[in-house]
């Protein structure tokens, strides 16, 4: 793993997120990432990981036991950062999730769906690919680097 790349593998349990967030924050600080982009990357990672844990292994006897793993990769390049999450759960394209109607009165709004919607708005682009029985979501963040 090079110094401009962070690679983590976590079990499919929500409790893993705090350690992932700590390591991600440390990597982004070393990389000179500006605060707005730090927040956007942390938000995307949180929502995509939580979504996998909640839905990717539904109906699987091993769901919740932590036997499935989720691979996380965060890479810096001169123009910004690329976040990739990969899991072997049920096929799910986050880009196909229903778009919440944010103009509805609060008592008529569906409770779910905001996390992926906001992730798409904070990111520069998102791609989804299903390959060899695995979901791969790639999120791109174009971002300047903070001057030292």
């Amino acid at each position: 793993m090079s110094s401009n790349t962070l690679e983590l593998t976590a079990t499919s349990r929500i409790e893993e997120l705090s350690a992932i967030a700590e390591q991600t924050a440390a990597f982004l600080e070393r990389a000179g990432c500006i605060p707005n982009t730090v927040f956007a990357i942390q938000f995307a990672l949180e929502e995509l990981f939580a979504n996998i844990v909640s839905y990717a292994f539904v109906g699987d006897d091993d769901a919740g036991s932590g036997t499935h793993s989720i691979a996380i990769r965060l890479e810096q390049d001169p123009a910004g950062f690329t976040l990739t999450l990969e899991d072997d759960g049920t096929s799910f394209d986050p880009l196909s999730a229903p778009v919440p109607d944010t103009s509805l009165p609060i008592d008529q709004r569906p409770i779910g769906g905001l996390g992926l919607f906001i992730t798409q708005r904070l990111a520069s682009s998102i791609q989804y690919r299903r390959t060899n029985g695995k979901n791969r979501v790639t999120v791109r963040f174009i971002s300047p680097i903070e001057e030292a």
């Binding site: 967030a21 942390q42 949180e46 929502e47 609060i106 779910g112 996390g115």
Partner: peptide
């Protein structure tokens, strides 16, 4: 930091 779960709590 807030996750979407905090927005859900506020709703």
């Amino acid at each position: 930091f807030v996750a979407s779960s905090f927005l859900r709590l506020c709703i």
